[in-house]
Design a protein around this nucleic acid. Structure first.
Length: 968
RNA sequence: GCGGGGGUAGCCAAGCCUGGUCUAAGGCGCAGGGCUCAGAACCCUGUGGGGUAGCCCUUCGUGGGUUCAAAUCCCACCCCCCGCACCA
């Protein structure tokens, strides 16, 4: 029979939808479980990496539902933000790369791409695409609550949230440096740059070197402490410079630098255009030492970086050292050689392992050829790092002598600034970074920027308290959350462009995406009513949210002022009281330091303690055949194509089983295929077991091995439950699939006669298949439903109660005997393997009763604590029944102790349940099986009884946990 | 730099918190066998080395230490990955 995965999936998607089993409404008295995953941003189809988080959440939702909870698992779509806007702009600008991505990688028809002329159209398209993927994956979502973050009703909600934050004093206004494109006049993030580089903003100290007429030559540096060793200045002689009036003083900087100063809100007025060569040869005063130093040309100076004026510290900066050596050797046009010769290298910092001039050390070490040599970067890194961590200011440096460099740096910069000899400037650390439009990125200081003040210490304190009291899975992340909360500072919460909600008190600003997604989980409880009754945005005034979310105000007056009928208001209020707080929040690990942290802050700010979230679950990402998924590698597999290729269940299992929660999953084609095959086989087996009898009808005919497999099943159920409870989905797959497979294949080997199964075995397997279908239902729901229905389970698997271990089917003695049988078989095989000739008969010798007595003492000792030979002998000595055996016991005791150590606590505990009679009967019973497996006659004796066939005297070697073996 | 995570057999990966059940789960790959006209799939067996008796030797980044006993606990070192924001 051929299994048609597609039609099975279609069938169950339809049945689930028609039966509305995933639509959750408040049910007083029934425990609820509210679970959400971070909603998707619809700027591309989802790939299998996105699928992991949603699948884990769905497994949890399905599991909790089967545990009797009224589970609510909703979904929305996050339209807020700039990337989609930027994409449309690029498409309109004829960006071929992006078009290619859409058409060739995502498989979107050309005509559809042509229609992408507005951000919302793009969002709607991917929204539907993503939603379909979620349905196809079998996610048990209550779709009645779906919304997007640009729905006007949602905007009312976000406005309300921001009014609350502002009321509580968490919203502030201030200035803020951002990466900026002067040509687009907009902020640039990673998405906006060539090569997706994140512009890093750094603060440079601007040191004011002055010409004799007072004109300032500001040198930008990250190492202001080295100013004491600045013995000349560098400019690029062919670079464009300007003399300009900056904040009322005359400055000379590069043309680009003037633009930066303007963006950073200095008053700037250019006066005169210069070339670098125009200022070469002039003399400037060092602001720290007062020394007159010459201005010299250097090719390495990049006029677009910093100010285009570079202070030269040849003792500690390899670039400066090399450049100085060059000018000393070659001379400079228009500068007297005497001036150049007079330049002395001045050391400022001493650091162990380096000479007085560390820059020279590394230049020699790296064999740097000239100032264009790329090795200078590494050389520079070396010196900087060593000096920063291990360096001290030399004792001849006034005031700061003896200070560690890291401390001196801050103090010197502060002191010079307070004396008006320096200031600071922001610049791009990883310069140069280019905007997609091609322009060089700079730093702009935005004035009047709105912030949420996550730096507020009191607010942080409360968030710490929440983190301590909630569950975070995996638990190791708790420390990370605490750290993140400690780091967080003001967060810019609004921008000028992009989709989203406008700040209610200042509509020029649009609330950015990480700030409008912090408490929206509660909105799912409202959106159901918005969708159901078409509540108008205008009705959703602050008092509406105050009432339904916080329980403030009076229903009648709220109803009157909003025009929303009283019963609807009350229903929403009841819904929120019932489902809130959120029981589990799921996301990938990349959201820990932003979204998830903000989620906690905002809940604490807006809700009462009893409505704070209960749990966060974080998972790692997905790799593709060992490599990171990326557009450039072209190894992104869209979720929906993967579903087509492997089927939803096989894909789910692949994503669930390949790694523990926080670890990155390595997705492999071969693994997905083997799950696919496994699932098909599971269904085929069910078809074959369909006609078997029910377990109840064969209960009185069960053999030990039947009892064994049923007992194992109970253990697997227990493992699966435990694993799912802790969201160790990997372990759940392990137990339900591989673990049970192991048990079943052993069982089949034991019960099959001539390769076939009798009707008892079939009945046992049928019952096992039914239980297994339910065990599998959260993990691979389509297959589970299919098998459950094939075997006539009744109702849907998704709504059954998750199996619990049944104590009456657990049989530890049988498990112990079977375990011993297996090790006996494997020991026998090992012996047989080493024998050259085939064996004709194999004899097992069980220990005589007195040995069992000694073993039971040993097990007891082990259970209570440690085990030792002397102690064991002492115990035996006082036992009158062992009186006659003391001569043999000393050797036996040491053997037993050794074996106990080898077996370990768990096995010894297990074996202690067995006694001689039970084991003898058990092995006698299994004799035909052993003979079949070992292909020779098997005989079982008890040491010390009459007619024991024992030509080599092996019987005496037996101990109770390990019968002796003789092979002939 | 600060903070977090990690280095386990051919590969991926569990175990580590709570030391002994650890030559170390499971999967993939590989090899042999079965099935088959053949192949794919599937099913068995093996997969550090040695061994004519169930065993011995070696192994969990490196080096020390604690312990009767260490992949697991402690110390030092080396290496790798991620986050540090205005961006979803």
């Amino acid at each position: 029979m051929k299994i048609n995965v597609d039609s099975i999936e279609d069938k169950w998607i339809r049945k689930w939808r028609e039966s509305k089993i995933f639509e959750a409404d408040p049910k007083p008295g029934k425990p609820k479980f509210f679970i959400t995953v971070a909603y998707p941003y619809p700027n591309s189809p989802q790939h299998i990496g996105h699928g992991r988080t949603y699948t884990i959440a769905d497994v949890y939702a399905r599991y909790k539902r089967m545990c009797g909870f009224n589970v609510l698992f909703p979904m929305g779509f996050h339209y807020t933000g700039t990337p989609i806007v930027a994409m449309v702009k690029r498409l309109k600008g004829g960006d071929r790369e992006l078009r290619k991505l859409f058409v060739e990688v995502y498989g979107i028809p050309e005509s559809v791409v042509d229609g992408f002329d507005e951000p919302v159209k793009v969002a709607r398209y991917f929204h539907e695409e993503i939603k379909r993927g979620m349905e196809e994956m079998g996610y048990s979502i209550d779709w009645r609550r779906e919304f997007t973050t640009i729905d006007p009703q949602y905007s009312r909600f976000i406005e309300w949230q921001f009014l609350k934050l502002r009321e509580r004093g968490y919203v502030k206004q201030g200035s803020h440096p951002v990466g900026w494109c002067p040509s687009c006049s907009g902020p640039v993030g990673q998405h906006d740059t060539q090569g997706d580089v994140e512009p890093e903003i750094g603060t440079f100290t601007l040191l004011y070197f002055k010409l004799s007429d007072g004109t300032i030559l500001p040198a930008a540096t990250l190492r202001p402490e080295t100013v004491f060793g600045a013995v000349n200045l560098w400019v690029n002689s062919s670079g464009e410079y300007v003399k300009a009036k900056v904040d009322g003083e005359y400055w000379i900087v590069s043309v680009k630098a003037l633009e930066k100063l303007r963006l950073q809100n200095r008053s700037v007025e250019a006066c005169e255009v210069l070339r670098g060569s125009d200022i070469v040869g002039l003399t400037a005063l060092n602001p720290a030492t007062g020394m007159a130093i010459p201005i010299l040309p250097a090719d390495f100076v990049d006029p677009t970086h910093g100010t285009g004026i570079v202070m030269s510290v040849p003792a500690h900066a390899p670039y400066d050292y090399v450049a100085l050596m060059e000018v000393k050797a070659k001379g400079v046009d228009g500068v007297e050689q005497r001036v150049i010769d007079a330049i002395d290298i001045k050391p400022v910092i001493r650091v162990e392992g380096y000479s007085d001039i560390p820059a020279r050390d590394v230049v020699e070490k790296y064999r740097v050829m000239d100032q264009r040599d790329p090795k200078l970067e590494d050389a520079t890194q070396d010196v900087y790092r060593a000096e920063y961590h291990r360096g001290f200011m030399r004792d001849d440096i006034p005031i700061y002598g003896g200070l560690p460099v890291s401390e001196a740096r801050v103090r010197i910069s502060d002191d010079l600034r307070s004396r008006g000899l320096a200031s600071y400037i922001y610049d791009i650390m990883n310069h140069p970074v280019y905007c997609r439009c091609g322009a060089l990125c700079m730093v702009k200081i935005l004035e009047d920027q709105w912030f949420i003040d996550y730096g507020d210490p009191e607010w942080k304190r409360v968030v710490h308290k929440l983190i301590d009291s909630m569950s975070i899975k995996p638990e190791v992340l708790k420390a990370e959350f605490h750290n993140v909360v400690d780091w967080l500072r003001e967060k810019a919460c609004a921008r000028r462009i992009g989709l989203g909600t406008r700040l209610p008190w200042n509509p020029d600003w649009i609330i950015e995406s990480l700030s409008d997604s912090t408490i929206y989980m509660v909105y799912y409880l409202i959106s159901k009513y918005v969708n159901l009754y078409g509540i108008k945005p205008d009705c959703m005034k602050p008092e509406f949210f105050d009432y339904v979310i916080l329980g403030r105000g009076d229903v009648d007056s709220v109803s009157k002022s909003t025009g929303i009928p009283r019963d609807i208001l009350e229903s929403i209020r009841i819904e929120i009281e019932y489902f809130y707080p959120l029981d589990s929040r799921h996301s990938g690990r990349d959201l820990v330091s932003n979204h998830l942290a903000f989620f906690l802050f905002n809940h604490v700010a807006i809700f009462d303690e009893r409505m704070w979230p209960r749990q966060i679950v974080v998972n790692g990402s997905v790799m593709m055949e060992g490599k990171k998924m990326s557009k450039s590698l072209g190894n992104i597999i869209p979720l929906r194509s993967a579903i087509k290729e492997y089927g939803a269940d096989a894909l789910r299992l692949s994503l669930l089983s390949a790694a523990s929660l926080l670890q990155d999953v390595d997705f492999k084609h071969s693994i997905a295929l083997s799950f696919k095959a496994w699932l098909e086989r599971f269904i085929k087996d069910a078809e074959e077991l369909k006609s078997a009898a029910e377990l109840d009808s064969v209960m009185d005919r069960l053999r030990v091995i039947d009892r064994w497999i049923l007992s194992r099943l109970q253990a697997r159920i227990d493992e699966a439950r435990r694993a799912l409870e802790e969201l160790e989905v990997r372990d759940a797959v392990q137990s339900v699939i591989y673990g049970l497979d192991d048990d079943i294949s052993w069982y089949k080997l034991r019960v099959s006669v001539d390769g076939g199964l009798d009707d008892v075995a079939k009945a046992v397997l049928k019952s096992l298949w039914k239980v297994r279908a339910l065990l599998l239902a959260p993990l691979a729901p389509f297959t589970a439903e299919e098998v459950w229905s094939i075997l006539g389970g009744g109702g849907m698997a998704s709504t059954q109660i998750y199996p619990s271990p049944s104590p009456s089917l657990r049989d530890i003695v049988v498990e112990a005997c079977e375990d011993m049988l297996r090790s006996l078989l494997s020991d026998s095989r090992e012996i047989l393997k080493l024998m050259k000739k085939p064996a004709s008969r194999i004899c097992y010798y069980l220990s005589s009763p007195y040995k069992w007595r000694v073993a039971s003492y040993a097990a007891e000792m082990f259970k209570l604590g440690s085990i030792d030979v002397r102690g064991l002998i002492d115990k035996c000595r006082v036992d009158p029944e062992l009186k006659g055996y003391m001569d043999r016991i000393s050797r036996l005791a040491s053997e037993i102790v050794r074996e106990a150590m080898r077996l370990g606590r768990v096995k010894v505990e297990l074996y202690s349940r067995i006694n001689l009679d039970v084991l003898r009967r058990y092995l006698e019973d299994a004799k035909p099986f052993l003979e079949r497996e070992l292909k020779c006659r098997v005989e079982i004796y008890v040491e010390g009884e009459g007619d024991v066939y024992d030509p080599t005297g092996r019987a005496s070697r037996s101990i109770p946990w390990r019968p002796a073996i003789y092979v002939e």
